[in-house]
């Protein structure tokens, strides 16, 4: 083998290694554990270990669970994994005024801590819009929260 051919082979090998590593990140499912937020079921599965630590919780607002306190300074609602009635739920108490998009059934991400009285206290409430953009006259239900949720609902 001539030196040039060997050099080319080494170069191709290096490109393959880089491509394989990128593919590994893409397809290796390692992202599943690298969470930006926890779902209610994941949070509850931690049991007592989850108390106190500053974490993020993401899910959908359970319809009918949104309640203001008397002087409108704090808001409590339940966050569920999915739209299904059987999904795991966590009660959230927010001291921040929610964005206007906040409504029953929309996705939210809240930052705060899970108290031992089973209430998630937060002062940072973010609304998670789906990738659906529809005109209002379209009618129908609000866009389901994220593709996965829609798929899960369809499978049932």
């Amino acid at each position: 083998m001539t030196p040039e051919a060997r050099n080319r082979l080494v170069a191709i090998g290096a490109i393959l290694v880089a491509g394989a590593a990128l593919g590994w990140i893409a397809l290796g499912n390692m992202g599943e554990n690298l969470v930006y937020y926890w779902k209610p079921s994941e949070l509850l599965a931690q049991g007592e270990k989850a108390y106190g630590a500053t974490v993020r919780l993401g899910g959908v607002v359970v319809p009918g669970s949104v309640q203001w306190n008397g002087d409108h300074t704090s808001l409590t609602f339940q966050v569920a994994d999915t739209h299904l009635p059987t999904a795991a739920k966590v009660t959230v108490s927010a001291t921040e005024t929610p964005p206007q998009m906040f409504r029953e059934g929309i996705g939210v991400v809240v930052e705060g801590s899970f108290q031992s009285n089973q209430v998630f206290k937060t002062n940072r409430l973010m609304v998670n819009h789906s990738n659906e953009y529809k005109a209002p006259h379209d009618g129908g239900m609000p866009g389901d929260w994220k593709d996965t949720v829609t798929q899960a609902a369809n499978e049932q």
């Binding site: 203001w68 409108h72 929610p98 206007q100 998009m101 409504r103 029953e104």
Partner: peptide, 20 residues
């Protein structure tokens, strides 16, 4: 500001941005 007009009768935000 993205603050819901907090009328007592309107306990739940409408979920639709007004204005903006």
């Amino acid at each position: 500001a993205p603050v819901h007009p907090a009328g007592i009768e309107k306990a739940v935000p409408s979920g639709v941005i007004e204005g903006g």
